[in-house]
């Protein structure tokens, strides 16, 4: 396996872990799928739609998100997602965990 491919796979693994935190955090404000994709991209986190939508379904089935289908401004029906009360609790814990991991890695890699 080429180095480039190895690195790509490892970066994918790294990102997979943090996407859940990023999504939960962004969904403090209501978003539909495509607007969330763009919001993630605007923040510098490019996520593939084939990763995002299954993740949204999983987070919802775990009770961390809520969603409903709505028509806003006479546009087409869209599914709007927002973080649930349980999701807020989990996100708070995850943020703390992330701070510890980030600090540890910063020290280790210096």
């Amino acid at each position: 396996m080429e180095n480039n491919e190895l690195i790509q796979n490892m970066v994918l693994e790294l990102r997979r872990g943090i996407i859940s935190i990023a999504v939960l955090n962004l969904l403090n404000r209501e978003e539909y799928g495509y607007s969330l994709l763009k919001a993630l991209s605007d923040q510098g986190l490019e996520v593939d739609q084939s990763t995002l939508y299954p993740l949204l379904r999983r987070l919802e089935s775990q009770g961390l998100l809520q969603s409903d289908w709505r028509i806003v401004d006479e546009a087409r029906p869209r599914r709007y997602y927002v973080i649930s009360p349980q999701g807020r609790e989990v996100l708070a814990q995850l943020k703390q965990e992330w701070a510890v991991i980030s600090e540890t890695m910063q020290k280790m890699l210096l």
Partner: peptide
Amino acid sequence: EIRSTLED
């Protein structure tokens, strides 16, 4: 959901 995203 896929239809809605693709159209967006």
